[in-house]
């Protein structure tokens, strides 16, 4: 019944759903990276660690303070954003005039420190975080079963990505951000407080990573390495989309998640490498990425 041309539609849609969920995380994380890279020209290697921090803070909030998921999903991204702001002000700003390689190495070091500290305290095995009761269960669709929480992830991710895109493309603040990526010095000469915008942008970008971490906590194992495993894939997606391209990061994140899901169904052996294969092809054909601007 649910089989068409030897394709098991239940299996196919199941993998598509997994791909769409992964794509939602890819989109949220690569969006944060793209925003930070666009304005600061910083490749934030601490992004994965800050995603992990978001998941751990949600877990700790529930475990130690009884703070539930609904409070955590609001408060934790703000805390992670505040930590990001401190990283930008204390560590990144003093080296902002140096070669970007220094900030790359610095954020890489910061990421390893976070990872090391959490491994030391919680060990490397994963911790579980229960799905909130309101999001348990699921819906039976014609070709698949959709767990409510997974639908929630896709909904939140698309909503946040959409709102962020709107803010950047259609508002005055977004115009500041876009212009700031082109010529921050001229923006300052116009009377715009660019250092403040840089700080808030960095905070917002890592806040998105914190949000992704909270969303991930109930379905993935909360572990110190959850960020580093994902980060390399997310970087590949940012490269495919075009470094600094906001729309590119969102669209590519979702498409690569779906592509990964389809590969898992049709040729599972290639599912962990397909994104990197696409990255190599894109770099060869269009080095600035699918949505990036050629310099």
């Amino acid at each position: 019944m649910a089989s068409l041309l030897d394709i098991n539609l239940f299996g196919l849609f199941g993998q598509l759903l997994v791909g769409l969920i992964n794509g939602s995380f890819y989109a949220l994380l690569s969006l944060g990276l793209a925003i930070i890279f666009g304005l600061l020209k910083i490749i934030n290697f601490a992004h994965g660690a800050l995603y992990m921090l978001g998941a751990f803070l949600a877990w700790m909030a529930l475990q130690y303070f009884g703070i539930n998921y609904w409070v955590a999903i609001i408060v934790v991204p703000i805390i992670v954003a505040a930590i990001g702001i401190l990283i930008e002000r204390i560590l990144l700003r003093p080296i902002s005039n140096e070669d970007h390689l220094y900030s790359l190495l610095l954020t890489f070091g910061v990421g390893l420190i976070f990872q090391g500290v959490f491994t030391h305290i919680f060990g490397s095995s994963g911790l579980s975080y229960k799905i909130p009761p309101e999001l348990k269960g699921g819906f039976k669709l014609p070709f698949m079963y959709l767990p409510t929480y997974r639908g929630w992830i896709i909904f939140v991710s698309l909503l946040v990505c959409g709102l962020t895109w709107y803010m950047i493309e259609k508002t005055k603040l977004g115009a500041y951000l876009r212009a700031g990526t082109e010529d921050p010095k001229l923006m300052q000469a116009f009377g715009i407080n660019v250092p403040l915008i840089v700080t808030l942008t960095f905070g917002f970008g890592v806040g998105l990573a914190g949000l992704a971490g909270v969303l991930a906590a109930p379905i993935y194992s909360v572990s110190p390495y959850m960020g580093s495993n994902l980060l390399i894939v997310v970087f590949a997606i940012v490269v495919i989309g075009g470094m600094g391209s906001i729309g590119g990061a969102i669209i590519t994140g979702l498409i690569m998640g779906i592509l990964e899901g389809l590969t898992k169904y049709f040729y599972p052996e290639a599912s962990t490498t397909i994104i990197f294969v696409v990255m190599v092809i894109v770099l060869l054909i269009k080095p600035a990425g699918l949505f990036g601007k050629e310099n």
Partner: peptide, 27 residues
């Protein structure tokens, strides 16, 4: 700081014009 100088009533038009390609004319 650079961003405070404009607020003294100074407008600067650079040699390369400084038109932002990511913004439309009205923006």
């Amino acid at each position: 700081p650079a961003h405070r100088i404009a607020h003294l009533g100074v407008g600067y038009c650079p040699e390369e014009r400084g038109i932002f390609s990511s913004l439309n004319v009205e923006e």
